[in-house]
Design a protein around this nucleic acid. Structure first.
Lengths: 208, 208
DNA sequence: AGCGCTATCTACAGAAGTGTCAATAGGGAG
DNA sequence: CTCCCTATTGACACTTCTGTAGATAGCGCT
C-alpha cells in the first residue's frame, strides 16, 4: 500500500539551483506576484518547506530569483557582444543577435515584469551609457570627412530607441502584428528587425 | 455607543462606476493579479460583498475592468487624433500628444500589464493598420516628384516603431535614463520625444 | 405614512498561501 | 558499520482572500 516515498537528497547548492530555475521560469511566465511556493515545489519535485529551508522566506526567494534572472541576462548579453566583437559582425547582425537573445530566452518579459512591479530598481549601474559610448566611438571613427560630428546624445538616443524597439517587439510584437493585419506571420517579425537595423545603421553610418 | 453607521446608497450604475474607477487605478498601479476585493472596497468606501453584489465575482469584475480600461484608452486616443486632425497639427505635435496621453494617464502601464498576463488578447480589431493607412496616404500625398513611392510596409513599420518607442519610454524611461547617466532629469524625456519625432518625420516627409 | 425593492452590511464558511516544528532518512566521515 | 549532519517531509497554525447568507436600511412610489 502506502509505499514509503524514496527521498532524493541533493546538495544544498543543487537544490538551490533547481528551485531557482523553476522560479525564474515562473517569473517569466506569470510575473513575480504569482510565484507560489507550492507550485515551484511541485515543479522541482519537493515539498514546499524544502524551499523555505533553502531560502528562508518567499521574500528572500524572490530577491534571489530577481538577481539570478538579471545575472543570466547580463551574462548572455555579454556573450553575444563578445562574439560579435570577435567576429567583426556587422551592426545589423549584432542587433539581430541581441533581439534574438532578449526575445527567445524570455528576458524581455522578465524585465517588463520587474519594471512594472517595481521590484528591480537600480540594479543596472550605467550599462546603457557604456554601450552608447562604444557605439559613439565607432561612429566617430567611421565618420566621413567634412561632416560635423554628431552629439553623443544623438547616439545615446539611437541606442535607447533600439532598446525600446527590441523590447516592444518582444512584448507586443504578436499583438501589433495582429492589429496590423499581418496575422500570425512570424516572418514579419524578422522583416521588422531587418528594417529597423537598416534604419539605425543608415542613421549611425550614413556613408555605407 | 456603537452609533448605527449611516449607509450611503448609490444607484447601481453609480456604484459600478465608482468601483470600476478604483479597480482601474489598482490595475494601473499593480497589475491584474493584485486586484483585491477588500482593498478596492476600502478605496470606494463600501464593504467587499457590495462589489460581489454588483459584479458577481472577482473574475467578472476583472473582465469589466479590462474592458473599461481599453475603452478609456481608445476614447482618449480617438479624441487626441480628432483634435489633431481638426487643428492641422504637425506630425511632431501629434506624436507628442499621443505620448503624453499614453504616459501620464497610465495607459502604457495598463497595456503592458494586460499583454504580459495575457488577459486582453485580440480586443483591438486592426487599429494599427487603420492608423498606418492614414499615415501612408498623407505620406504619398506629400511625396516630391520623381521619387519612387515607398511601400506600405515601410510606413507600417515606422508606425510600429513609434508605438514601441512611446510604450518603451513610458515603461522603461526612468530606468534607462538612470542607466544612461542622465539621472532623474525629466527634461530628458521630452528631449527624447522631440528627437524621435524629428527622426520619424524626416523618414516620412524627407522634403520638409 | 406605508410598502417594496434592492443596495449595503455583518458574520461566517472555505480555499489557498506562507511559515513553523518535530520527526525522518540519505549520505559522507570516522 | 556506526554516527552525525542536514536535506526533506507531513502535519499544523495563522493569515488573507473569495464567496455566501441573512438581516438591515435607504429611497422611490402610491
Amino acid at each position: 500500500m502506502a509505499q514509503a516515498k524514496r527521498r532524493i537528497r541533493r546538495t544544498a547548492e543543487e537544490a538551490r539551483q533547481a528551485i531557482l530555475a523553476a522560479a525564474v521560469e515562473q517569473l517569466r511566465a506569470s510575473g513575480p506576484a504569482s510565484i507560489r511556493l507550492a507550485e515551484i515545489a511541485r515543479d522541482v519535485g519537493v515539498s514546499h518547506p524544502a524551499i523555505l529551508h533553502h531560502f528562508g522566506s518567499r521574500e528572500e526567494l524572490l530577491k534571489a530569483v530577481v538577481q539570478e534572472a538579471l545575472e543570466r541576462l547580463h551574462g548572455e548579453l555579454f556573450e553575444v557582444l563578445s562574439h560579435a566583437e570577435a567576429s567583426e559582425a556587422s551592426s545589423v547582425e549584432i542587433l539581430d543577435a541581441m533581439a534574438e537573445t532578449l526575445e527567445t530566452a524570455g528576458h524581455a518579459r522578465i524585465i517588463a515584469w520587474l519594471s512594472l512591479s517595481g521590484v528591480a530598481d537600480a540594479m543596472d549601474r550605467g550599462r546603457m551609457r557604456q554601450v552608447a559610448e562604444v557605439v559613439h566611438a565607432r561612429r566617430l571613427e567611421a565618420l566621413p570627412h567634412g561632416i560635423k560630428a554628431p552629439h553623443f546624445e544623438d547616439t545615446l538616443f539611437t541606442c535607447v530607441l533600439a532598446t525600446h524597439a527590441i523590447m516592444g517587439e518582444a512584448l507586443l510584437g504578436r499583438a501589433l502584428r495582429q492589429s496590423s493585419g499581418l496575422g500570425d506571420d512570424p516572418a514579419a517579425s524578422t522583416r521588422f528587425r531587418r528594417w529597423l537595423a537598416r534604419l539605425l545603421v543608415e542613421k549611425l553610418e550614413p556613408g555605407e
